[in-house]
């Protein structure tokens, strides 16, 4: 019996492919790798590129990945694909943006948050009114 590999290609948002293959080619960071069954365990990052899965029936399937992690076990290949375009400075910009937003939100006295506060105050006032009404009813009796 021919030896096969189990291949899983998953991204954070969905499972992309799962099945058996004769051979897998992936764009590793240090150059394209071809993985045959009984490959030694390897962990590497992926470059944007194409993952080719050579199926048992000789036909090939192609998957585009924009990066990610490749894990190889002797009979299992796992591609953890990125869905987002990643680069150090891009991530940095994202982080900065969320930080700024938080700072602005805290400094900002108007807008969304006054609304929430007003709502809370309104709820308090309504509760007080209810209490007063109930007291009045009781004293009337």
């Amino acid at each position: 019996m021919a030896m096969t590999l189990h291949v899983d290609i998953v991204s954070a948002e969905a499972e992309i492919f799962s099945g058996t293959a004769n051979m897998v080619f992936a764009p590793a960071e240090m150059g394209e790798v071809g993985i045959a069954p009984r490959h030694t365990p390897l962990l590497t990052r992926l470059k944007p590129g194409e993952v080719r899965v050579q199926m048992e029936g000789k036909d090939e399937q192609f998957f585009y990945v924009s990066g990610g992690i490749l894990e190889i076990q002797p009979h299992v290949v796992t591609v953890l694909a990125d869905t987002a375009l990643r680069a150090k400075d891009l991530d940095e910009a994202q982080a900065l943006r969320t930080k700024e937003r938080a700072e602005k939100a805290i400094a900002d006295k108007v807008g969304d948050f006054d609304y929430a506060k007003a709502q809370a105050e309104l709820a308090e006032a309504v509760a007080q009114l209810h209490a007063i009404q109930r007291m009045r009813k009781q004293t009337k009796r």
């Binding site: 954070a12 948002e13 869905t83 987002a84 375009l85 990643r86 991530d91 940095e92 994202q94 982080a95 900065l96 943006r97 969320t98 930080k99």
Partner: peptide
Amino acid sequence: KLEDLIGSVK
């Protein structure tokens, strides 16, 4: 999208 989270997690 996962993208939207990268900032806060980072």
